[in-house]
Design a binder for these strands. Sequence first.
DNA 1: ATCGGTCTGTGCGCAAACACACATATATAA
DNA 2: TTATATATGTGTGTTTGCGCACAGACCGAT
Lengths: 244, 244
Amino acid sequence: MPATKHKDDARMNHLLAALPADEFSRLKPELEPISLALGEVIYESGEQLEYIFFPTTAIISLLYIMENGSTAEIGMAGNDGLVGIALYMGGSTTPNRAVVQSAGNAYKLRSKALRSVFDLSGVFQKILLRYTQSLMTQISQTAVCNRLHSVEQQLCRWLLINHDLLQTNRLIMTHDLIANMLGVRREGVSIAAGHLQEKGLIKYVRGTITMLDRERLETAACECYQVVKDEYDRLLGKYISKSH
Amino acid sequence: MPATKHKDDARMNHLLAALPADEFSRLKPELEPISLALGEVIYESGEQLEYIFFPTTAIISLLYIMENGSTAEIGMAGNDGLVGIALYMGGSTTPNRAVVQSAGNAYKLRSKALRSVFDLSGVFQKILLRYTQSLMTQISQTAVCNRLHSVEQQLCRWLLINHDLLQTNRLIMTHDLIANMLGVRREGVSIAAGHLQEKGLIKYVRGTITMLDRERLETAACECYQVVKDEYDRLLGKYISKSH
DNA sequence: ATCGGTCTGTGCGCAAACACACATATATAA
DNA sequence: TTATATATGTGTGTTTGCGCACAGACCGAT
């Protein structure tokens, strides 16, 4: 995995090219050229980032890796973008792996250099950005979940999220509405809900669902639920009272 | 659709509760209580946002609506979060609908009040945030696409994205690697790729794929490709040279 | 009490994608 | 050149989810 230098123009990256001359010239001495080999891991899930990357010719893939090893791409960045959002959003890491999908070049910028530019004055801004990052995790996990998990698992996850947001076990919601949320057929929800009811995890009648056994709902759900929840706590836990 | 007032404590929203007393008291006079009815549309896809919402008891669902009318949820926000990220990320809108999934209360904050707090000094920060929003669209669309579209459609989309990022028609990539990206089986990719080759859209041999007919690839892809591309242009086009 | 609308259960056939198995073809290195 | 690893083609059987159709159950309004 050679990480050699190169001589691309940093302005081959569209985002860097968009900077006014003065901002770019301030940044330029901090930009280090780097060559990226196919398959090289830019960062690992949960790993502290040291650099943000601006590809010039390389393409980098953002992947989620399931506990069982299967993978799914949630995003891709080339010279149209950058890799390492977590550095300025405040989270420092994400639960994803970034891997070089097409060998090529990039420029990297040390986090310290970035933070001096991205100096947020108030707690409010910090929280907004951290929440945004946590929402990105939620969306990413929805993407992965849609690809790899059954309707029943997704229904469990969806019920758990609702249980977290509502104070009550009782949820006013028809199968049909849930189907619209999950992007599946109403019948599919009815069947999955029927299973969960048989097993005693929930019960429901005509537009009302009652969660009976939260613990077993969690085991019946896929890992996605917990990933999102943990990431929310990691990003915002220090700001939010311990109570939750 | 009544939008009446209420008397919830704004601090029932965890993000508002996280603010230090001085920041919160500055914000407080700007926070307007509002009651949200089930099914109420907070904002429509592409609609300019006027307010950011902090739910206290309501739950709001972020949906993508396909051209054919089918829907899929990409995220959910309750008292753990907020709705209207695009306002401070710089995009003003998103290609999603936000709809009340569980009736309840929220506080809304006018965009003007928010912008005065979220004052970014340089172009660099603006671009970083706008890019982040465009990446969110990409991830969202991946979620939707995973739910609703065939492997073949997704393969087309994936090839088109690569074609945009690479300068060339020639892509060094095995079916197996693509399968890992799309989160499907290798055989599934082989079959889809076989179809596209039969139709003359691509051709491939052992680790190299050549795109032959970009136009027809676009029609064979789902709408997701274009949605993401348009949103990128909308968010960053004004910064990036017209050339692309 | 009755009617009409809504919600849920169920059955059927079908298509997409899966898992597994194995054949064939092609590049790379010994 | 040959051996080996890798890439792709193909077959079988299974599962999941879809589309459609309709039945029964329940609710609210007249």
